[in-house]
Design a protein around this nucleic acid. Sequence first.
RNA 1: GGGGCGUUAGCUCAGUCGGUUAGAGCAGCGGACUCAUAAUCCGUCGGUCGCGGGUUCAAGUCCCGCACGCCCUACCA
Length: 550
Amino acid sequence: MASDPSSFFLTTPIFYVNDAPHIGHAYTEVAADVLARWHRQAGDDTWFLTGTDEHGQKILRTATANGVAPKEWADRLVESAWKPLLDTIDISNDDFIRTTEARHEQGVAKFLQKLYDDGHVYAGEFEALYCVGCEEFKPKSEIVDGEGAFEGQKVCAIHSKPLELLQEKNYFFKMSAFQDRLLALYEERPGFVQPASARNEVIAFVQQGLEDLSISRTSFDWGVPIPWDSSHVTYVWFDALLNYVTAIGYGQDDAQFGRRWPAHHLVGKDILRFHAVIWPAMLLAAGLEVPDRVFAHGWLLVGGEKMSKSKLTGIAPKEITETFGSDAFRYYFMRAISFGHDGSFSWEDLAARYQAELANGFGNLASRALAMNRKYFDGRVPEASAIADTEAEAAIRDLAATVAARADERVEEFAIHEAIAAVWELVDALNGYITEQEPWRLAKDPEQRERLATVLYTVTEGLRVLAVLLAPVIPQATAKLWAALGAEAALGALAEQPIREAGDWGRLPAGTEQRPLAVLFPRIEAANEAEAAASAERPVLHTAAEADSR
RNA sequence: GGGGCGUUAGCUCAGUCGGUUAGAGCAGCGGACUCAUAAUCCGUCGGUCGCGGGUUCAAGUCCCGCACGCCCUACCA
């Protein structure tokens, strides 16, 4: 169904600007970034979109509390919190859409008008419990049974006062009409919602029956106006979901839209339903293709519980990157957590993996290999010779090819952790190979010169393979390694290396001049580790969004 | 209430359609080595597979019950 087999359009949820950035947001972004970089390096027509969601009553309210207009408030948060977050973790997004941009608002209006014209939208009465204190209709999750004087009544979870049953005129989207088509979609395309556990929940939900969706509000005006009735603004979720098409020119640039759509959506499992039910129903109504895939990832657990700001377990990404660096942040969350499942975060695990895998495993491998080239071959890539070739070299070459193919296969399935694990087999194998071949011993015997060259060529070429395969995950460290290998001059920029050919052996030419390599992952001083560990127990979010009035 | 997921080594997790002595990484312990970031490599210790039944020649895996934890159960942006 994809418009072009090589097109790869990937999205993250857009950030609700009022939130404070924490590692959960960063986690989604990093996963998307790794996938995007991988596909880009594979030569696919890749487009990676992220952005911010800026409408809705909560934002209007915080802006007002801070004495500024909502747009100004959003501007401030985008610049002070969200765009810096992307820099902190080295995100390579191709576009950043804000729901307050004209291109988005125009696209939303166009989409709504089409649905209205085609009879998918009708005016109706929205009836719900309203809290006078909150000045808004309350979702079920914020309604509790009253106690004491209010026994038997429904009360607001925040104010503990009785709620009033109020009505307001709303426009409704006839979502119920799409129930059967959605069920057929899940049936025909088992990979549409992933992983399987998420798919099961979605199917069970839709089978219970779909109601129509209220898509407009009249109680406030911070939103996209309903095109045929300016007294209403668009319900914020309906507005937000449309960013995935308005960003690629829906209704304005058909060429761009045709080239990119449909998308692969990465979402947290909390917002799965919006993406796997409401969103495809909206697209079906508009006569557009449904997404290629909706992939729900899990929660980050801290101390066994879902990380949350209110429980003071929220962690700002900078706390990690300032000690360990952005590469380590990216590597850790991608490697340690099975993508699609919940995963435990701990400072201890982060520090242990940094030390064992990045510093001692990969970093040290690069150091020892380049040091020997420098020492025994004057800093040049040695030349392998067929005469000195043994089964040990063949095993490394085979592994490099196998691992490269398997990693690509796993990335295709969004099994990022498995892709990295596959690549790491080569890291471990090369460390073992060096120890077994004992090049330092070969170096003492002039008659073993060719053997020594062959061994070191094998290791060096292995590093080249690793640099290419790990570039999407740890772009900074691999860039340093690439430069030290001298590969830039011989093969071109690292980001240009075709990743699906990474396992092809013998690319790095003998004689290539190498450069000194700074330690890729320096040991973290124990004092810093202790400090990092201690900070896990403090409230730690310091952003402008702290002014959030809730 | 209904539905779903999970519980496997000290820790974090794999375990396919039921099929040999249940695996990995880390941590621990012992050894080898010196090119390297006191690193690497080898060996080793470690499990009542949450509990109780059942089906089967055979159960971590399938069925029933129970315990504990988490999630969903319509507008959380």
